[in-house]
Amino acid sequence: MNKNDFSSKTLRFIKNNSVPFLFLIICIGGVIASRLSINYILNEIVNRLDRNLFLVLSLIIPVVAGMGLNFALVVGAMAGQIGLIAIKVLNVKGIAGLFLAAIISIPFALLFGYGTGKILNKTKGKEMITSLILGFFAMGLYQLVFLLFVGTIIPIKNPEIVLPGGVGLKNAIDLKIIQYALDDLLKVKIMGINLPLASFILIGLLCLFTRFILKTKLGQDFRALGQDMHVAEVAGIDVDRTRLIAITISTLLAAWGQIIFLQNIGTLQTYSSHEQVGMFAVAAILVGGATVTKATIGNAILGTILFHTLFIVSPNAGKNLFGDPQIGEFFRSFVAYGVIAVSLVLHAMQKHFSADEKMETAE
């Protein structure tokens, strides 16, 4: 390989991975400026991987199927929260309660996923904006059900979770009955770092499931749709059905991911826990180098590490650099939304460069 070829490949590699490189540099700067101990940062990263990675991984299948980034992840999160509210009412504790919440969430997640898929099939080419607006619409319905129907149509009388007037759920519901039920199931400490092995085994199983399904006939159909929907339809693939399956799987995984997330937190903010789920998961996978047309398990893992490292170090970095930790908090919010905009712009630029390269090659 001559020097020019090597330089060209290096430049292309950097260009294709510009977002991860950018955030790696920002993270290194943040870690240095925060002056936090490496042990503390590593413990926090492990905790946030345990808490968030399942949700981020649930985005992969719709991207492969050409449906873009599923902002309607929030709909799946609501299904998971319905399962958690149910076990709180039934007072089922520990790992049994967590398992029951996952079971209860399945029919809701499948129903919500099916409905979402049907709507997205009517708006081909505009899936991301449709799923974003759909998430806001679903939040309104969710609030209607749990603010008005609970205590009237839905007979829940538990004073621990129902508002004093007897109608509507309280803003915050204590989940101590299942807190750390999964995390503490199998936990080890290595070099001062707490590793919740049961949670990571579950995440590993999801990675294996994702790899397995993408190698099946259904997975090949997903890939065909992602490359060119019209060609896939000509090849005999049932486009609408395949897209419906992709979004339903994503919604179900999001429901389970939200249950894992909230068992780690220990508190359900009834009307807000689900609000930022889609945005933060999308931001994390984009930081890892995914695009609206390509996402891998590696993108999800790397993105979650980089995105949440920034969340961990930014308050202290803001305090040390500017004398105000609030600046770090503002920076975290800015990053969550800014990374999506930056990634989409870079993706558009990369598509433009690719199109130019193809034209030059053809000439």
Rank of each mutant, 00 (worst) to 15 (best):
P159K: 06
V75C: 12
G226H: 10
A77E: 07
A79W: 02
P164H: 03
K187N: 09
E44D: 14
G151V: 01
N320D: 02
L57T: 05
P159Y: 04
D324N: 13
Q263I: 06
N320E: 03
N17E: 13
N171D: 15
E233A: 15
L346P: 09
A86C: 13
F331T: 15
I129V: 15
N320Y: 02
G140I: 04
N52A: 11
F54L: 08
S8E: 15
D50M: 08
N39M: 07
L346Y: 10
V339I: 02
M229G: 12
G192T: 05
T361P: 03
L182C: 06
N316C: 04
A317G: 09
E275A: 12
Y180E: 08
R332C: 12
F136G: 07
G257L: 06
A101W: 03
C207Y: 10
L214P: 07
I153F: 11
G30M: 11
L42P: 02
Y271W: 01
A232C: 10
I259Q: 00
L197K: 13
K122W: 07
L144I: 07
Q263R: 11
A348H: 08
G125D: 07
I103E: 12
M78W: 02
K176V: 04
L206F: 09
L208N: 05
T270D: 03
L42N: 04
L252H: 07
V89S: 00
E329S: 14
T216Y: 01
K126E: 15
Q276Y: 11
I327P: 00
C27T: 12
I247H: 03
P325G: 00
V74K: 09
V46N: 12
G323I: 06
L36K: 11
G204P: 02
I45E: 06
A198Y: 13
T251H: 00
K126Y: 13
Q81N: 10
Q227V: 09
S105W: 03
L225A: 09
A72C: 05
S18E: 07
D221T: 09
V89E: 01
V335C: 09
P20R: 10
D356V: 13
T116K: 11
V292K: 13
S343Y: 05
Q220F: 14
A198W: 05
